[in-house]
Amino acid sequence: MGRLGETDLADRLSPSGRHTLLVQVVFALLVTGLTVALRAVIDSISPAAGPFSLGFAAILVATLFGRWQAGVITGVLTLVYSWYFVLPAQNSFLLKNAEDTGRLILAAINYAAVLVIAELFRRAVRRATAERDREIAERDLFLEEFDHRVKNNFTLVAALLDMQRRRAKDAETAEALSSALTRVESIARAHRHLYRGAAVSRGEADMATYLEELCAALAEALFLRGAITLDCVCDHAAIPRDRAVSIGLIVNELVTNAAKHAFAGRETGRIEVRFEAAAPGWKLVVRDDGVGMPDIPKARGKDGGLGQKLIDGFVRQARGTAKTESGLDGTAVTVVLEA
């Protein structure tokens, strides 16, 4: 019901306010015309039944959509019409029955009451709408400021990690810092894509757009050009953004691991990321045609062990299960996600 009071034809059809009265008069005439037409249909079935009943609805509609001026015009016109054409004697302002005078006065009073109530309701809704719009504007401003601060924080953390990586003299330390830098940059990309713009209002992300942008950024960051390629094939699917972040981080870890370890001693290769609908939900596959995984697991505490723990954690956050298949023709990790 509140939506009715938000529609103001005078504002919509005359934003400048120069033709507000004209809009109200035309709208009042339109409402009155429809009321007269409906009155004619009723008179063909039951002549003179409820002579003033349609006026209440007409005044209500005219006031809600055209303000009190349109309601006054509609009320006067419908009252005069009912007096002249419906009350006996018809086609005359003379009242045949003495009680019709009281009915006419009572109808006028009730018309005025309906008009006042409708106008008060319309104004209350307009005030509530204005307050809501103000709060939304303040929220958007806060989110914009928050987004800017988060973006700056990500940039600062990435810069510090990169600085430490460049100063590290130990190769293992430098590699660990490089991996941490890549993960921070992946989370920053997720934030930029999923927590800004239209995605905020919906609370969901289109996985095709998100993963394609993520793969393009990974290809650039990992220098996957020419001989080693990264292909991304994704179905469009609306996924809650928190789950989408976890899925993106899974892709980041798997692609990074493949780029670093799958093509040892080779100059050519292909990594494929595929996201598609599959009962009961979706399926994510990251596949490479590299040398396969070694039979001996990596020792705990190494980067590989940390990477696997991160992948397992991200899979749980995404509400999925992971399966790894590896051989001489490469490695494929399949993550089945619940609906």
Rank of each mutant, 00 (worst) to 15 (best):
G248A: 11
T209M: 00
L181W: 01
S201Y: 04
I239S: 08
G292P: 03
P240L: 11
L218C: 02
E272G: 04
A278Q: 03
L222T: 08
A188P: 02
K283E: 10
D295I: 00
L230D: 05
D242T: 15
K298L: 03
E185Q: 05
R225L: 04
V245I: 15
A244Y: 06
V291C: 08
A237C: 05
T229N: 04
V273N: 08
E253N: 11
A188E: 12
A238R: 12
I296R: 07
D235W: 02
H261C: 04
E204H: 00
V251G: 12
A159G: 15
T173D: 07
I239H: 05
K283Y: 03
A198G: 12
G248M: 12
G248V: 15
P297C: 13
K283W: 03
A188I: 02
R241H: 13
T182G: 08
A279M: 11
C215Y: 00
A237H: 01
M163F: 14
L177A: 13
G292F: 05
R196A: 01
L214M: 09
I187Q: 12
R241I: 13
V285A: 10
M163D: 15
V286R: 09
T182L: 09
R287K: 11
H193Y: 08
A264Q: 10
V233A: 12
W282S: 13
H261K: 07
D231Y: 03
D206Y: 00
G226T: 05
E172T: 15
R183K: 09
V255M: 05
G269T: 08
S201Q: 06
E185A: 13
R189L: 13
